[in-house]
Design a protein around this nucleic acid. Structure first.
Lengths: 242, 242
DNA sequence: TTAGATTTGTGCGTATGTATG
DNA sequence: ACATACATACGCACAAATCTA
């Protein structure tokens, strides 16, 4: 078994030492069949249960472990890329930093038909309500946002102010009664189309960040959103540490 | 002040109830000038400090709060971009999905001198130990990784196997005794140089994702890493809710 | 510069609740 | 019904970082 001595006076917190030992064992594949229970770890490493739980909490937040009440703690199948695995990225931009007011300009809204999109989203109907907005400060734009809403009543959006920077979800909630419960985001890089470059005020040779979002309400897709961002004006940032 | 009664028998954990109350107050801007200290919240809501800390921990993980030892807890200025604020992005690629073995090829290691980099990192010396690796499966590469280590003994890396996919930090730890405690990542988009495109096996007109990492050991920079990724082969993905 | 107060971080102990098998 | 597992909640003490008098 493991049995590595933790050093209380090393300046490194006990839970961090324990997490490091466990992380190494996980990466070697030592716990693939079974991860020790909390009481077992308490006994093995001679620390309190709070310390064990703190270490496990950290490894969960890093994506190494997941826990199920009543069942146990399990190793998550490893991603290939070291420690870029599960940091919390947030969008940070000059607008937020400088405190400039953010504005959203409505470019277009209305029904569109897109068979390819419907197919990739596994939807039976190719009808979408499209909301296209340009976001930025008064001086410059940093994002072009296209939200595709399947199966909604276009009239729901007639009286809604879409120029506010606020969330589309509150609009969805108040306009249609739909509550978004889960979703996914995917970040990639791409080249802008001529129109995108023009709207964002960049050259066609400048690359952009693309975020694709799927939002669900009770396992049902309620929004597909593609946001095109200017990397010089806004970027994703994660801070991590103990 | 606040005073909302929490209900112990409601089925909802006390910390979650407290977090919800605090979140609402935060969004109204009630705590913009000062967020209550832990003992104050204990007194206000008549719960234990662990419960208070659990609620604050959650709000920190959601990006609403940040805490500094000795200073206090503070409301994070809301990012301009709705709800992309605190998702957990992890790198997902074809390699991990298909279960192919990941390999790392050492391209170069040795001392380099870069005054611009030293200046941007606010370092007095422009001497770096550079480790350049190409990562991918046997069939194709998906990332070019350049790690700049200031002030390390080059001999530390003589006997180390850098072709393993494993973390550089364990190398740092064993080779130099340095323990990485904190850091930040920033994701952007860029065009590859001729050499990068060639090494990654892509066209020069294909955009790439760029991740810049800063790693610290006790407030001291110990690594600056720039990773260039091929978006078609690997991307950042976050799932939320549920 | 120093000393003390304040605030979050770490770590211990205990007890009880809830989900699972 | 029972044992096992993690989740919640309480209390206490001291350490480390920060601010202030």
């Amino acid at each position: 078994m493991i049995h590595r001595q933790l050093d209380a006076g090393s300046g490194i917190p006990l839970w961090a030492q324990l997490a490091e030992v466990l992380r190494e064992e996980i990466e070697v594949g030592h716990f693939d069949e079974r991860f020790p229970s909390e009481p077992e770890l308490v006994e093995l490493f001679k620390v309190s249960r709070s310390t064990v739980r703190e270490a496990i909490r950290y490894l969960r937040s890093e994506g190494y472990l997941e826990a199920r009440q009543g069942k146990g703690t399990f190793v998550v199948a490893s991603e290939s890329f070291d420690s870029l695995r599960s940091h919390r990225f947030s969008l940070a931009g000059r607008i937020a930093e400088s405190g400039l007011e953010e504005v959203a300009r409505l470019l277009w809204k209305g029904l569109v038909y897109d068979a390819d999109l419907a197919k990739s989203l596994e939807l039976s109907s190719d009808e979408f309500f499209l909301i296209e907005r340009l976001r930025g400060s008064r001086q410059e734009s940093f994002a072009l946002e296209r939200a595709y809403l399947p199966r909604v009543n276009p009239a729901s959006f007639d009286c809604v102010d879409l120029t506010k920077a606020g969330s589309l979800y509150s609009v969805l909630q108040s306009g249609t009664g739909i509550t978004v419960t889960a979703g996914s985001d995917e970040v990639s890089a791409a080249m802008p189309s001529e129109r995108e470059a023009s709207l964002l005020g960049i050259a066609e040779k400048d690359p952009v960040l693309v975020v694709e979002r799927r939002a669900y309400s009770r396992h049902e897709l309620v929004e597909f959103r593609r946001t095109t961002l200017v990397p010089a004006r806004v970027r994703f940032r994660a801070e991590w540490g103990r």
